[in-house]
């Protein structure tokens, strides 16, 4: 019994020593890399923001000027604001829709009049070769939304053609564009509902 206990202690010690040793190695590596990792994450964010907010309308760094608002579905949405001489000229935020293979995440840029400055797909699980034409890299389909707003086209036309709206679906895929159009519309609704607090300081 005593020998058995000693063996258990020994096994525990071996395992414990390895845990401790590798824990320390990992903590050290984390220290070493955390700065670079944070920088990369910031670059990613800046890249996606710069695609939907043209450089000409801001002199601040939108990544730094953010606030968090809850949307209709009680989801936390981070809104990034672009300013020119302190005045809010536009906002960028994420919007979500459902496509053929799951959630589609979009980044929307909207100016202070409610017009779309640009839309980009951040992540999706759509079929390669069919649904992935929503990426700006694969097709210019997503660019057609620039300049549109809730009144242009009228609200009831904010749908794909198949649903009686005005946006083309592309060959072989209806559900993906439908998800994108709905996500953009809900993003614009979110903007309209929160416009006061988004550009309050004007």
């Amino acid at each position: 019994m005593k020998i058995g206990n000693l063996l258990h202690v020994r096994h525990g010690l071996v395992l414990g020593c390895f845990c401790l040793g590798f824990g320390l190695v990992l903590a050290f590596t984390d220290r070493l890399t955390s700065k670079d990792i944070a920088a990369r994450a910031l670059e990613d964010r800046q890249n996606s923001l710069s695609q939907v907010i043209p450089g000409s309308i801001h002199d601040n760094d939108p990544v730094e000027d953010k606030l968090v608002i809850k949307d209709a579905g009680n989801r936390d949405i981070t809104v990034y604001r672009s300013r020119l001489q302190g005045k809010v000229t536009g906002v960028a935020f994420e919007s979500f829709g459902t496509g053929y293979g799951g959630e589609i995440r979009l980044m929307l840029g909207v100016d202070d009049q409610g017009r779309l400055l640009g839309v980009r797909v951040l992540a999706h699980h759509e079929t390669p070769g069919l649904g992935d034409k929503i990426e700006s890299k694969k097709s210019d389909w997503i660019l057609r939304f620039t300049g549109l707003s809730l009144g242009n086209p009228p609200v009831e036309r904010w749908k794909v053609k198949k649903d009686g709206g005005q946006f083309d679906q592309f060959a072989g895929a209806t559900i993906t564009p439908r998800g994108v159009v709905r996500a953009i519309k809900s993003g614009l609704d979110f903007y309209a509902a929160n416009k006061a607090s988004l550009i309050a300081e004007n």
């Binding site: 390895f18 590798f22 890399t33 670079d36």
Partner: peptide, 23 residues
């Protein structure tokens, strides 16, 4: 358990390094 621990630790090293330098 020790093997799994060692592999997991090496994976984390690769994970952190790739995140930082091969993003």
């Amino acid at each position: 358990p020790v093997y799994i621990l060692i592999v997991a630790a090496m994976v984390t090293l690769v994970d952190l390094a790739m995140n930082a330098w091969m993003h």
